[in-house]
Design a binder for these strands. Structure first.
Lengths: 217, 217, 217, 217
DNA sequence: AATGAATGAGGCTTCATTCAT
DNA sequence: GATGAATGAAGCCTCATTCAT
């Protein structure tokens, strides 16, 4: 499952024969995607109808099919967008890799922020992963990639003796992922709790890494 | 004689005689509930149809409405059942309250086991909580009750100086809840990992409580 | 179409074999009939359900079929009851047949009172007459009998030179019937208008008979 | 893909794009209306089904919902049409207002003709007025407008001393309306009786107005 | 590129009615 | 005589999707 997710791969180099379905830039297409995102977030997948989406996008019902083959397809495209946005948000450049605490804080903050921001769609993604193999692949990427990356980092700093994880790195990363999701939910409900959540999650993360962040900060 | 039906003004609800709808026993009702649970777990809420449920229960389509008013209603009843089963499973009697490690292990084990066992319905419950106030109440009970109970315990042992939580008890409990859910998902996929998951989760739980062999920095 | 209207004629003289369906006196049967009358009057024919009727009668749904074969059948029985009551109410004994004005007044009063009293069912009867031959027969009796009787009387008094009808007796009677129904509707809505309505209808009746009731009474 | 439909929370009604539902022309809409009129007239309201209507209109079942939201709605639209046609038919221009007899004859003829012509729908309208406020309003207009208009005219000619009504003008008009309806029913059954009916009704009308050769007592 | 119109397919419910107890 | 339970038959309505323009 590569990066650029679209039903038929965008054959950008060809001239002349180029149908609407291929044009990723048509303005109506973008409006439909945004509309779909809002509608799905508001109603959930099942209850959302093509009519809801086209109404929101101010496009005729038939207009939908100029750009997407079906409800499933918009959702897949949307899912790809979410995955990209979510994973990209995990890239936190400019952090001193040697400062474990700083890395922990930055990655935790990025994860919680991204998860909270995309919560509605992520929840649907998880739900739809059940019945759609392509969506499942996207969902697994979303779930696994940050965990594996974190595990890799933990393994390294542990090997360097700069951390003493309580459990094996992959398990620890999963656990921290799980707790971060929990915090992300809270943050999605009450954005003001973001700083506090990041601080707490980071503190626990570091503690589990065996790095002495003093309890009761 | 089917011609002259419907067309009735909106006024309704005049049951004088008791109907089967009130009976909570009745074998068919149980069969329908079990069938509904399986069907929902297999297909998800939206895609599941009354026909799927009645077919599974070996009852006529109309038979469904003898006991439930709608798909929503079966789901609510089912949700209540799941909440009861889930919360009941958290009662782990016969554990020495003074042995913090034992309590942590027992409650973690119970939580993970129960969550893994009911995972499919719990996921749907969360999903449906979005649009149904009654289901939302059930879902919140499921989410909050174990966390609050754990927080209460943590607060007590912390007050007694037998634990030194890294963060405040409620936050800690939420975090542990989140990580446990993560493990429960893994266990639901591969039941063989249950013991390992419980051991790891317990270890981290205790570590966050400031108990156990703190790895030296 | 004889007087005692029931689906199967009441074989009252037989002993021994007598099924519930034959017993016209069973208390539940009466309750069901009364209930049916109320329910039909309240909801109309189509929207009324067997469940509505049995609920009102405080009988189980199945209990209905002990006494009636179908919704159509109760309605027919009810229709027979209404016809009997309506026609019986037209018999105004003890009026001096020679006093044309007195007869006109008495018959008009009886007709308006009876029509107003049974208005809801009469309206349904007319409606159902469309699709049910048996009901149609009842309805025609209800409509025609009073008119024919009146026409007979008019013809007689006209022959005796005691009246000088503006149009032929049957037509006149129909017309008076039509206007009386109009008044009956008003009376059904506002019972207090009964006396006034009878006075007006009688005045017009007599006037059309060419009998000098002074205008502007 | 039919699995994932319905299940939508009660919030609705978000048409941004204009749909066919708004267009009062559109040939299919007219066909459906005509079909509905025939079907309702033939079967009555309750027994008529959307399938009957669409079959008659040679439109798919779903096609109905492109133009109407429900059976109730077509009926309402139809009722409006009938009211318009019926009331318009009462406008009899070009009659010398000073010739009371001519006016009486013209208005009686128009009323009987229009009532007979629309009898099947008018009967249903009365029936449905019971349960639908909008239909009730239409029905009352149909019933009251001609009566009030007639009463106004009677009042005027009475004030001018050109008529000597037996009862007060409104009551008289109602009565004449009632008798005219009676005649309209006969005419609807046997159109050949129209002329006779109009002549008779007019004669009685004028007589009640105290006009014409009063039969001597 | 866009859309108004139309429809096949399918799900939900209701109700009259039967039947074993 | 009465009824709880169950069901066949039907009607309503929605929605994704197509197609001619």
């Amino acid at each position: 499952m590569a990066r650029s997710q679209q039903d038929r791969p965008p054959r950008r180099q060809e001239w002349a024969t180029r149908t609407a379905r291929d044009r990723t830039d048509a303005p109506a297409r973008g409006r439909l995607l945004d509309a779909a995102e809002q509608v799905f977030a508001r109603l959930g997948y099942g209850p959302a109808t093509i009519a809801d989406i086209t109404a929101q996008a101010e496009v005729s019902r038939a207009g939908f099919y100029v750009y997407f083959a079906s409800k499933e397809e918009v959702f897949r495209v949307l899912a790809g967008r979410v995955r990209d946005a979510f994973l990209t948000a995990q890239d936190v450049p400019g952090v001193d890799t040697d400062d474990v605490a700083a890395v922990a804080r930055a990655s935790t903050a990025a994860f919680i922020a991204a998860y909270a921001r995309h919560l509605p769609l992520l929840v649907l993604l998880e739900q739809q992963a059940r019945g759609d193999a392509e969506v499942r692949a996207l969902w697994e990427e979303i779930r696994e990639r940050p965990v594996r990356r974190a595990a890799r980092y933990v393994r390294r700093v542990a090997a360097e003796g700069r951390a003493h994880p309580v459990v094996d790195p992959l398990t620890l990363s999963r656990a921290v992922g799980g707790m971060s999701i929990e915090f992300a939910r809270l943050v999605a409900e009450r954005p003001a709790t973001y700083e506090r959540a990041v601080a707490d999650a980071t503190a626990m993360y570091l503690h589990l890494l065996g790095i002495g962040a003093a309890p009761q900060q």
